[in-house]
Amino acid sequence: MKEGSYANMWDTPPSYSLYETGEAGRMDYFLNQLINGICQGAIYALMAIGYSVVVGVVGMVTFTHGEVIMIGAFAAYYMFFLSGNQIILGLIVSFAASWVLGYFVYKVCYERFFNAPRHVSLLTTIGFSMLIKNLSQIIFGPNQKPMLDVVEANFFRIGAVQISELQIVIIITVIIMATLLSLIFNKTKFGIRLKAVSQDKTASYMVGINVKRVAMLGNCLGCGLGGIAGLLLAVYYQTIQATMGGPLGMKAFASSVLGGLTDVRFSALGGLCIGIIENLGITVTTASFRDMFAFGFLILVLIIRPQGFVSKKGAKV
């Protein structure tokens, strides 16, 4: 059943008990926290998918992904500001903006370093991420910016279990993106080239694939997905800030590592797991321990399975 939008929620009487007492109430509460976790996990999953495409195809670890996500969020912010609440337009613009940034990341951080030691491009990505962050602070200002209400704040209830329209939109968007990516990887020539490059660059070169070009496009594609994750985050949290990227990049990295770094499906699963673990952890403690649960879980899994959820090389969907 559907509740009214909160535009006129002041007409309803203040505060009511959402939960029944006893076992049933505890279960509903647990389910609500699970939904929060799934929603957050879905966003982490999208960040991790983009991340593992980048790492898989380029073959080098990146620390600019947080900034890529942030640029996507800002692109969406300005698009919504101009167009009202055209969410499709916002998705396209944030994808495009992060794609363009991905091109520069490729040019600066990877193109000349394919044959250099790995730490060279790693350090370059760290430096470049600082450059983007500081430039963004100068251009966009250091303050938080309010996000427009793009999705109407309706919510659906089954008993005391509540899910908002926004949460549904986020989860559906992530599923669509993951499916599209899967189709690209498996059904198009470009996708097969991407897979080939991520599995073995030398062999791909020998069969006539333009490895650098494919690596560039794969990097941009991963960044574009990061940009969409940025849009979803901005809409979900309703504020954006130039410094928002750092912790998000770490979460994307952690989710991706959990999934085995280059496997797209398992990275998505890693993101989902971290989101759920965090939120269930908060259920029993408090949010000050959020990152402890996320990274504690990561360490625990890596102790048991150092290769993450999967061990084979190369990007797979």
Binding site: N36, G37, Q40, L233, M244, N279, I282, A287
Partner: peptide
């Protein structure tokens, strides 16, 4: 009573937790 550290962005699980206690 729930708390969080600097730079927290997602308060949904804390809000759910508060709501379960049904404060006025």
């Amino acid at each position: 009573a729930v708390n969080y550290v600097q730079d927290e962005k997602d308060f949904s699980s804390l809000i759910t937790k508060l709501r379960a206690a049904n404060p006025e």
